[in-house]
Design a protein around this nucleic acid. Sequence first.
RNA 1: CCCGCCUUAGCUCAGUCUGGCCAGAGCAGCCGGCUGUAGACCGGCUGGUCCCCCGUUCGAAUCGGGGAGGCGGGACCA
Length: 316
Amino acid sequence: MSREKRLELVRRNAEEIVTEGELDSLIDDGSPRAYTGYEPSGTIHLGHLVTVEKLKDLVEAGFDVTVLLADLHAYLNEKGDLDEIEEVADMNRRAFEAYGLEAEFVLGSEFQLNDGYVMDMHRLAVSTTMARAQRSMDEVSRSRDDIHVSQVVYPLMQALDIAYLDVDLAVGGTDQRKIHMLAREGLPRIGYDAPTSLHTPILTGLDGSKMSSSKQNWIDLSMSEEDVEGALNNAYCPAGTETDNPVLEIAKYLVFPEFEEVEVKRTEKYGGDVEYRGYPEVARDFESGELHPLDLKKSVSKYLNGVLAPARENFR
RNA sequence: CCCGCCUUAGCUCAGUCUGGCCAGAGCAGCCGGCUGUAGACCGGCUGGUCCCCCGUUCGAAUCGGGGAGGCGGGACCA
């Protein structure tokens, strides 16, 4: 694969890369290493899959990809007992693999309790201010009031993971960027390299607002095909605009990376069938009014169900 | 360790002083109507261990005692 093609894959659908220059030199490495950490979760949702999609791009572009099943992080974020979390982690690994991700899977607690790691954590703690650690968790932590000490330990460990997994490129949603910036500044102070980082966009919730566990405004692997159709049909989808449009985002970030062509079936009354090769064509027709929201929804739910099918079977 | 304040619907809160009317409001949610989607708009509906336990009382979210959790302050600083 050409250098240009590889770079194109890495950059595709990325919200930002810090920094482009660093990526440029990384790509010339023999086998650069990339990673994403996930708190094991009972609900793998489309937001997770946006980053998985990116990891698949990276594999294709010649990166060695590691997925951290961050059981201790989930524990620190008050997601339950460590035993329960590890069961969920195993289920998550199977879902990711079924989704087509070829990566090495590492359980966080396997190395995060070692002497060297813990001492490095203390060294990083000494060189990091409370405000900085707390701020880095704004988009990540379970509850923003009643802040627990665990919530500032969390980003320190996430930074260290990057060093201990020997990662060149840290991947995550834009909600992770402040933690990655903390890693970029903090790791060199204790003798490690600053990682390059790549951030994927955060999907808009199905109701047009921010995705939130309390609102359940998302699609996840526990949902049947019919549930997905229903959820998409009920989704916020203002005609003619890409702004805050979850259905278009799903097409862009999850459907088109998996399908070269997407067909929209319509009766003659509404213009007849159309085929789209690539998301820009969809965006163009949607903005012009050529493509009606309902037709978009029907088509997206059909293709999205195709994308989810293998992982869904391995969900439990 | 001491003192003060707080805890009521998914969320923000009212009600507590002075016990009694079905425990309320806004927002969120759900269901319809209007749209060839959703939203907006209109109409309707749902929603509660009043933090827990014990007591007083005919009757306790409300009063008394005990406890838990949260927040703030004080003290301690060998």
